[in-house]
C-alpha cells in the first residue's frame, strides 16, 4: 500500500517546523516516528497534502532529572526509553508499558511525543501521562505553551495542540520516596493495541496514607481517560483490600468501552476491574521499596 500523494518537507528546527506549518496551512501534518501516521495514510484514513518531518530536529531526544522534574524530550524513541538506565531503575512503569507497545523495530522509530500528540486513546503513553500527571510543553506561533495533561486530550484524535504546535517536552514529577507506578494492558497478541489497559501512580507517606493517586485508562473511551471517581476513593486514605475492590468496580462502571474485534463491552469492563486492582497493588508495592 502506498500513501496518497503528498509533499514531504524536512524541518531543521522547531521554529522551522512552525514556519513551514504556517506557510502550508491546515493540510500539513507533522510526522515524528511515523508509525501511527504513515499506516493511517497508507489506508487513506489520513490524506495530508504536506508532511513536515520533525524527526531530524536536533536536541529533542533526552531523558534527564532537573530539580523535582523528570524531563523527556518529545523525539526520544521508545527504544531509547527502554534502554535508559534512569528509567529502568526509578520508573518501572515505563518498562511495563514499553515492553507491551508494538515491537522492538517499531519502538526504534516511534517517539513518546508522537505517541501522545496523536491523541489516540489506544496508545499506551497517554494513560501513563494521566496517572503521573504530566505537563506537556509545546512550541507554537505565539511561543511556548504549558499544558497540564488534564487539559490535553479533547476527544477522538483531538488534543489541545493547534495545527502549528510542536510538542517538545514531557515533564513528570521526579521519583521520590513513597512513589510508585505500574501499567498493564491485556492484548490479543504481542504488540497489539490494548483490549484494555490501566496505569496507576501513587505517592504514599510514611504511615502508608495515599497522598497522591493517578489512574489512567487505555482504549476504553474516545479519549484517554482519567478514573476520577476511583482516585477520589483512595486519596487521603490508607489503601485497603476493600478500597481496591471498590476502585476496580468503579473502573468497570465508569469506563466507556465498545464491543469490537478485541472483545465485547462486558468483557472489557470485566478485565478492567481486574487490571485496575492488580495495578494498584503493584504500584503500592513499588512505592514501598
Amino acid at each position: 500500500m502506498i500513501p496518497a500523494n503528498f509533499t514531504y518537507h524536512k524541518a531543521s528546527s522547531v521554529q522551522d517546523a512552525i514556519a513551514l506549518s504556517q506557510k502550508l496551512g491546515e493540510e500539513a501534518k507533522y510526522m515524528s516516528g511515523g508509525h501511527s501516521l504513515l499506516p493511517m495514510m497508507k489506508l487513506r484514513f489520513a490524506t495530508p497534502e504536506h508532511i513536515i518531518d520533525i524527526s531530524k530536529i536536533d536536541g529533542l531526544s533526552y531523558i534527564k532529572e532537573e530539580g523535582e522534574i523528570l524531563r523527556i524530550g518529545a523525539l526520544t524513541t521508545q527504544s531509547e526509553m527502554e534502554y535508559n538506565t534512569l528509567l529502568r531503575r526509578d520508573y518501572p512503569i515505563f518498562m511495563d508499558a514499553i515492553k507491551l507497545t508494538a515491537d522492538p523495530s517499531v519502538r526504534n522509530a516511534g517517539t513518546i511525543g508522537g505517541n501522545i500528540a496523536h491523541g489516540d486513546a489506544a496508545n499506551d503513553q497517554p494513560a501513563l501521562m494521566l496517572a503521573m500527571r504530566a505537563t506537556i510543553i509545546a512550541e507554537g506561533t505565539e511561543g511556548q505553551k504549558v499544558i497540564p495533561i488534564d487539559d490535553f486530550f479533547h476527544g477522538f484524535y483531538m488534543t489541545a495542540l493547534e495545527p502549528s504546535d510542536v510538542l517538545v517536552e514531557i515533564q513528570l514529577p521526579k521519583k521520590k520516596k513513597g512513589s510508585g507506578g505500574a501499567y498493564h494492558k491485556v492484548e490479543r497478541k504481542v504488540g497489539d493495541y490494548a483490549t484494555a489497559g490501566v496505569a496507576v501512580h501513587v505517592v504514599l507517606d510514611d504511615s502508608g496514607i495515599c497522598q497522591e493517586i493517578g489512574i489512567g485508562l487505555t482504549n476504553v473511551s474516545a479519549a484517554p481517560m482519567r478514573l476520577d471517581r476511583g482516585e477520589a476513593v483512595l486519596k487521603g486514605k490508607k489503601i485497603t483490600d476493600d478500597l481496591i475492590a471498590q476502585v476496580g468496580t468503579i473502573a468497570s462502571e465508569d469506563s466507556e468501552p465498545t464491543s469490537d474485534l478485541r472483545g465485547s463491552e462486558a468483557y472489557k469492563r470485566s478485565i478492567l476491574n481486574t487490571i485496575t486492582q492488580r495495578m494498584i497493588r503493584l504500584a503500592i508495592e513499588r512505592a514501598q521499596h
Binding site: 500500500m1 514531504y8 511515523g34 508509525h35 504513515l38 499506516p39 497508507k42 508532511i51 518531518d53 524527526s55 527504544s79 508494538a102 515491537d103 522492538p104 523495530s105 517499531v106 526504534n108 522509530a109 504488540g191
Partner: peptide
C-alpha cells in the same frame, strides 16, 4: 505491509526498522 510481520526489516543506522512503514526520503 502494515508493520506487523517484520518481513521488511532492515538496519537503518544500525537499528532494525520496518521499511514498509518508512518513507524513502526520510
Amino acid at each position: 505491509d502494515t508493520s506487523n510481520c517484520g518481513a521488511c526489516t532492515i538496519l537503518l543506522n544500525g537499528q532494525s526498522i520496518k521499511s514498509c512503514t518508512y518513507l524513502a526520503v526520510r
